[in-house]
């Protein structure tokens, strides 16, 4: 599903240039649940941004579902993001003057799905994350865990090829963290490919594979026994 070859990325900071990604190679197959771990500064967020087409690599190849991703203009990048990717952020990033339902329906709106269909679909995904009753509520009326579940529903609504989660549990307490991970595991069980960036060991171990990043290189890439989050809930 995802293929990366010799990926380099550096940031210019004044006269100095900071080499963040130093030639990464890896691939993710369909249906995988991969955790990317590393301390801050290891380049894991940069990697995720590049995978999410929010940022562009300096050199290297990136293929997503057989489509080479390079030299995208903004319009095309937006289209690909909409079609291929779902994002879950640490800070939820819901649009706060729109109701939960409208938030979930947003990616569908950008796909120009008719209003009625859009709402039906959004409601279906909200139901999947167990927030059907909260559809008309604004984000600030929801708890952190609920917000993240809405965000996950939103990421899933466009039926993306890959779900990218940047520290999805970073702003949550451990109980809600496990709830969110449980949800992510369930979505993965349905066959979706998911990438989770985290620095928490226990969250990482709820995935099926852990990629360790340190100073811009992969130091470890191992399959792990998945810990089901549902046992903690």
């Amino acid at each position: 599903m995802i293929e990366i070859k010799e990926l380099h990325k550096s940031y210019k900071m004044g006269a100095n240039s900071l080499h963040v990604l130093k030639g990464l190679n890896f691939s993710i197959k369909e249906g995988e649940l991969v955790a990317i771990m590393g301390s801050s500064g290891s380049g894991k967020s940069t990697l995720l941004n590049i995978l999410g087409m929010l940022d562009e690599a300096d050199s290297g190849e990136y293929t997503l579902d057989g489509v080479p991703i390079k030299n995208l203009n903004e319009t095309k990048a937006a289209k690909y993001r909409n079609k291929f990717l779902g994002f879950v952020f640490q800070s939820f990033n819901l649009i706060n003057y729109k109701s939960a339902l409208e938030n979930v329906a947003l990616p569908l709106y950008y796909q120009k799905v008719p209003r009625k269909q859009r709402e039906e679909k959004a409601l279906k995904y909200l139901e999947q994350v167990g927030l059907k009753e909260w559809a008309e509520h604004l984000p600030n009326e929801l708890s952190g865990g609920q917000k993240q579940r809405v965000a996950i529903a939103r990421a899933m609504a466009a039926e993306p090829k890959v779900l990218l989660a940047d520290e999805p549990t970073g702003a949550l307490d451990s109980k809600t963290s496990y709830e969110v991970m449980d949800l992510i595991q369930k979505i993965n069980d349905q066959g979706n490919t998911i990438l989770v960036v985290t620095h928490e060991e226990d969250i990482a171990h709820m995935c099926k594979r852990i990629v360790h990043l340190k100073d811009g290189v992969i130091v470890e890439d191992k399959k792990v026994e998945q810990v089901r989050a549902s046992q903690y809930v």
Partner: peptide
């Protein structure tokens, strides 16, 4: 700014 960023991450066309 943030909202625009979210919307673009979700795939809204810049022209839109």
């Amino acid at each position: 700014t943030k909202e625009i960023g979210i919307r673009r991450a979700l795939g809204e066309d810049p022209w839109s």
